[in-house]
Design a protein around this nucleic acid. Structure first.
Length: 680
RNA sequence: GCCGGAGUGGAGAAAUUGGCAGACUCGAUUGACUCAAAAUCAAUUGGGCCGAAAGGCCCGUGAGGGUUCGAGUCCCUCCUCCGGCACCA
């Protein structure tokens, strides 16, 4: 939808130019996720279990030149959730996704290839004396150059096969480890030994440096690989300080170093620091941090998306469209060919343009932006959508932003919510926003499961509400869905209980329109109205819609049996409380009872916390932890009076049975607990 | 495998965050109204035991242990289910 409005998406383009200036947008050739069915690239976040987020087609890797946003520059800040009221689940998902690992990056020289080194990342530099071989990802750029003639055919075949294997299959942990020796050797800079260099697809090109030192004694994957190919397994970390050979399995815990030269005897933690420091002194490495998070691939070979404001000129290269020329308008006449590549590439009027720098004929970028770019900042447009000078009017925005209440499905946990946090921080650093986080308070509505699967409009797994609306009305259906259970939990869809919501609304209708029978004021009912107002108000703020409705049901039952002015005022309050839950019915009743204006524009009912607590309360009396009697006393009764009243109870005295009282505990307005010594 | 969340009646669920377990709703049973049914209203509805009744007693929140005057809630061990990530070096 956004793509229909150039005045919206021009700001996607404006932001792109700002990020480009800052070095936060860049173009690079990299192995990227490719959906063969949609014929477009995808960001990592849009590959779900190796499948395309949109069409569930297995994704493959392809080397392509694409545009990226440098979200990794904010990885550390994105790990922080200071001051945010967010569900634990979402925080953990984002933290896992970002995947920060501390360790060291170290280089080993390739034997017989002067100047060539293999850089690798490890979280366990303490195990470096046990690195008996190295493994490169099949896509690693060094592979072709170092492979020996004898191994060339085998290596080429393996690389080819890896390229043609779907990502989901390649990264399956259950898959047996496979690989091929390159015939080349590296020099372990710590043991001084020559170690063979292998390629294997269990090493990922996109993580760390795409290469590892393999320590089979202390890594399960390396152990499995070494066992399969008969490579040396050398213990260098011992849980008890003594040596154990041969190892039946990798020992991945901490311990003290053995067979590790000058570092022998150190603890794992100490050795991690000392070995990284040693690598730094020798100029071959340093302590380092690696993230699982990859930069955000924003190019798409799709029609519906914001055109990327770039011109490719034979003379000048990649040239940004000047800000004054924005927006670059998405043509309306593109054809959906269903074939590969961006549809824009087939429109000569769009593609052919003049270079903004030299004026010579040039070609426009034909990729469009990921639509998650659109949704990453829309909240800043809300405060003043008419303002044309910027995407947001700061004077208005200061009043409304950041967003204090945000809700959405859990499916946004590491897509929209991560992108929006990133864009917020970028705009802050550009000087356009004055806060660090776009959404200070977040709640996820639960998933409704229908026929065993998530009920989803885009997936077509829905039950149309029409039949329920026709039979019970939209308010009943809405109320029932809020009453089924906690809104944040979701539920299996089952309309069996909808009659209850229907009956409740009918009862409200009846009592609201009946002329109230005469009678005196009813202080007990007045208090209940107050109490209900309190409960509905706090439950609403906490998203506890089910219990708010339960409280209103109780009030409606009490009003049904009441009379007099208390009843009439209670009904008025109930209609106001019900308005957010049953908007149509409450509006109708509001008018039928002579109310003016809309019920939805009235003040929310007030309550007096003191009045809520007044009246009589029931107090439980326990003897040695068991309930023995119940007392009714005025709320706020003193501890002493409640205690003596409790001890005066016959039932309590029977339970005490003459034993000595050790202590009594009084919880105001709630209970008295009597503790005795051993029964005499 | 790692991380997160959750296990409470026949069903959906409550429980003021350590204070009467099962509010509210569905379903079921019984009664009132009706020629009858529907609708509506009322009563009962965790299990077991004692009692003619009024009422009383015991057990009970996935399992076992612990802390506490008191545990659905806190701690330890385990089981099951749901969700996320997963060959991330």
């Amino acid at each position: 939808v956004v793509t229909c409005y150039p005045e919206y998406y021009r700001w996607n383009q404006w932001m792109f130019l700002k990020l480009l200036e800052r070095g936060l947008a860049y173009r690079a050739t990299a192995p990227v996720n490719w959906c063969p069915r949609d014929e477009t690239v995808l960001a990592n976040e849009q590959v779900i279990n190796g499948l395309c987020e949109r069409c569930d087609t297995p994704v493959v890797k392809k080397d392509l030149t694409q545009w990226f946003y440098k979200i990794t520059a904010y990885a550390d800040e994105l790990l922080k959730f200071d001051g945010l009221d967010w569900p634990e689940r979402v925080r953990v998902m984002q933290q896992n996704w970002i995947g920060r690992s501390e360790g060291a990056e170290i280089a080993f020289a390739v034997d017989g290839h002067p100047g060539q080194t293999i850089r690798f990342f490890t979280t366990r530099p303490d195990t470096i004396f046990g690195a008996t071989f190295m493994v490169l990802a099949p896509e690693h750029p060094l592979v072709a150059g170092i492979t020996s003639e004898a191994q060339r055919a085998a290596v080429t075949a393996y690389v080819e096969e890896a390229r043609n294997t779907a990502e989901i299959e390649r990264t399956s942990a259950e898959r047996p480890k496979t690989g091929v020796a390159t015939g080349a050797y590296a020099r372990n800079a710590f043991t001084g030994e020559r170690v063979p260099i292998w390629i294997a697809d269990y090493v990922l090109a996109t993580y760390g440096t795409g290469a590892i030192m393999a320590v089979p004694a202390h890594d399960e994957r390396d152990f499995a690989f070494a066992t399969a190919y008969g490579l040396e397994i050398r213990e260098v970390i011992s849980p008890d300080g003594s040596e154990h050979a041969p190892l039946a399995a990798a020992y991945t815990g901490p311990g003290s170093l053995v067979r590790s030269g000058a570092f022998t005897g150190l603890s794992s933690d100490e050795a991690k620091r000392r070995i990284a420091a040693d690598a730094r002194e020798r100029g071959i490495g340093d302590a380092s941090v690696t993230y699982r998070l990859r930069d955000w691939l924003i190019s798409r070979q799709r029609y519906w998306g914001t055109p990327i404001p770039i011109v490719h000129c034979d003379g000048c290269g990649v040239v940004p469209v000047p800000e004054s020329d924005l927006p670059v308008v998405l043509p309306r006449d593109a054809e959906f060919t269903g074939r590969g590549g961006s549809p824009l590439a087939n429109l000569p009027d769009f593609v052919n343009t003049a270079c903004p720098r030299c004026g010579k004929p040039a070609k426009r970028e034909t990729d469009t932006m990921d639509t998650f770019v659109d949704s990453s900042w829309y909240i800043y447009r809300y405060p003043d959508p008419k303002d044309a000078s910027c995407f947001m009017n700061p004077a208005v925005g200061r009043h409304w932003l950041p967003v204090s209440r945000y809700t959405g499905g859990i499916e946004h946990a590491i897509l929209h919510l991560l992108y929006a946090r990133f864009v917020c921080k970028v705009l802050r650093d550009l000087g356009y926003l004055w806060f660090d986080e776009p959404f200070t308070h977040l709640r996820n509505q639960g998933t409704i499961v229908f026929k065993g699967r998530k009920m989803s409009k885009s997936r077509g797994n829905v039950e149309a509400p029409d039949a329920y609306v026709a039979r019970y009305g939209a308010d009943t259906l809405r109320l029932f869905m809020m009453f089924m259970g906690p809104w944040t939990d979701g539920a299996d869809w089952d309309a069996a209980g909808i009659e209850g919501s229907w009956r409740f609304l009918n009862r409200v209708w009846t009592i609201a329109l009946q002329p109230p029978p005469d009678g005196p004021r009813d202080p007990e009912l007045d208090r209940m109205v107050q109490r209900t107002t309190l409960r509905v108000t706090t439950d609403l703020e906490a998203y506890h819609f089910n219990t708010a409705i339960a409280a209103m049901m109780e009030l409606s039952t009490a009003l049904f049996h009441a009379s007099g002015p208390s009843r009439d005022e209670g009904v008025r309050t109930l209609i106001l409380l019900l308005a957010p839950f049953a908007p149509h019915l409450s509006e109708e009743l509001w008018h039928r009872r002579g109310g003016t204006g809309s019920v939805h524009q009235q003040s929310w009912p007030a309550f007096d916390p003191g009045a809520v607590r007044s009246g009589d309360v029931q107090i439980v009396v326990q003897v040695n932890g068991k309930v023995r009697d119940r007392l009714t006393v005025p709320a706020g009764s003193s501890e002493a009076s409640v205690r003596s009243l409790a001890l005066a109870s016959e039932k309590v005295q029977t339970a005490i049975g003459g034993a000595a009282i050790e202590k009594t505990i009084v919880v105001p307005d709630r209970l008295v607990s009597v503790v005795t010594g051993r029964p005499s």
